[in-house]
Computed example of a mutant assay.
Amino acid sequence: MTRVIGLISGTSVDGIDAALVDITGTELDLKVELLVGETYPYPEKLSAQILAVGGGKELSMAELAVLDDEIACSFAQAALDIQKHGGASLIGSHGQTVYHRPLDPTTPHSLAYSLQLGRGDLIAQLTGIPTISNFRAGDIAAGGEGAPLVPKVDAYLLSHPEKSTCVQNLGGIGNVAYLPPRSNPHWLAEIRGWDTGPANSLIDLAMQHLTDGAQAYDRHGLWATSGKPCDKLVEQWLGQNFFGQSPPKSTGRELFGALYLQECFADMEAYKLSAVDKIATLAELTVASIVHSYHTFLPQLPNRVLLCGGGSKNLYITNRLQTLLQSSAVITTDEVGLSADFKEAIAFAVLAYWRNLGIAGNLPTVTGARQKMLLGDIHQIFDNIIS
């Protein structure tokens, strides 16, 4: 048994998720027990700076270095806090994505680019725990998108012997892992995954704008449930090129961020939508993009859809998904024994564990990489570096 801390802050930048887990086995016999899960908010000033940089604010190299260190310090503090519950020998830190450029299929010999801040070497020295970070680089070097990286973990923790499963993460950006039943002799080779589009990113930004910063998100989907979506706008927005692009594909705030929201608000003007109608329409885009993605790119609709991430608590989104995916049971990963709140942090604990054992962490059928790759850079501990 190995005790590992998994750390991640997603595109919503709503805090650092930390999971302390015990891990045994390797792949088919992989078992994970979540001991403690906590979310540690960033200092308000740091959160605002991360969002600004993710939105395109320019930085000098010196400013970038300072930001990298500040994020690492916040991650290290989260690890030290959860380590009080005892005994971790390894940290897996995804860090904070501030820029993601997917593959450009029109440019020969191009590679994707993805930048996660919160340097693993500093986390290791501040915590005294070996740390694995920079998980996306290995997959990108092999020609992959570098995302999503969690589907292999999903495969071994959430696949079912007889039922096909979609694991749908609802963070700032939505992503799906399609898992055929394990009774299928080629089940692992037939796993697929991709980013489905915006999940909470546009809704969160809109809530902050419409409430003058008083509300950071639509708690439980109450605003969306109170409003009426504009179906014509949702249909129009689904014409955006990303939604029709075949997997493998990934995206981020670079596409579905503040500038995109401004365009959405401009489109809404013609329909005279109320504030709650605007949130309902953005939430309906999240739902419609997922349903469109399943109907367009899956071999068939799954027997069940397992939701995780902050959006799994948005009752508008969850109820609409169940309505539109009638043949699929829509539940959360909590209901099958894996925390919906901390699944992504757990996944990066597992990816670090695999890296330490020399087990590849990516699925080329998901990311488009040319081969399986070890994921993550290992940062060991050296005495008397930082006191």
Rank of each mutant, 00 (worst) to 15 (best):
E162Y: 09
K163C: 07
K163W: 07
K163E: 15
K163M: 12
K163N: 11
S164M: 13
S164R: 11
S164E: 15
T165F: 06
T165Y: 04
C166M: 13
C166G: 06
C166R: 00
C166A: 15
V167S: 06
V167A: 09
N169E: 10
L170V: 04
G171H: 01
G172V: 07
G172D: 12
I173D: 01
I173R: 02
I173W: 00
I173N: 01
I173F: 01
N175E: 09
N175T: 10
V176W: 00
A177H: 01
Y178R: 00
P180T: 06
P181F: 00
P181M: 03
R182W: 10
R182D: 08
S183H: 01
N184D: 15
P185L: 03
P185W: 03
W187V: 04
W187H: 12
L188H: 13
L188K: 13
A189P: 00
E190T: 10
E190W: 07
E190Y: 08
I191L: 07
I191K: 07
W194C: 04
W194K: 03
W194A: 12
D195S: 02
G197Q: 08
P198L: 13
N200P: 07
N200D: 07
N200C: 08
S201D: 03
S201R: 02
S201Q: 03
L202A: 08
D204E: 01
M207N: 11
M207Y: 07
M207C: 15
M207F: 11
L210E: 14
L210V: 09
L210R: 11
L210D: 06
T211H: 04
D212T: 05
G213D: 10
A214I: 09
A214S: 14
Q215L: 08
Y217Q: 05
D218G: 05
D218R: 02
R219T: 14
G221E: 12
G221W: 08
G221S: 11
L222I: 13
L222Y: 04
W223G: 01
W223M: 13
A224Q: 03
A224C: 09
T225K: 15
S226L: 09
S226N: 15
G227M: 13
P229L: 01
C230M: 12
D231Y: 03
D231Q: 13
K232Q: 15
L233C: 11
L233G: 02
V234M: 08
E235S: 14
Q236V: 00
Q236R: 14
W237E: 05
W237R: 05
W237C: 02
L238D: 14
Q240T: 11
N241R: 12
F243I: 09
F243L: 09
F243P: 04
Q245Y: 04
Q245K: 14
S246K: 12
P247V: 03
P247C: 05
P248S: 11
T251H: 10
G252N: 12
G252P: 09
G252V: 10
E254R: 08
E254L: 06
L259Y: 09
Y260H: 13
L261M: 11
L261W: 02
L261C: 08
L261P: 04
Q262I: 01
E263I: 00
E263S: 11
F265V: 01
F265T: 01
D267W: 08
D267T: 05
D267L: 07
D267M: 05
M268D: 01
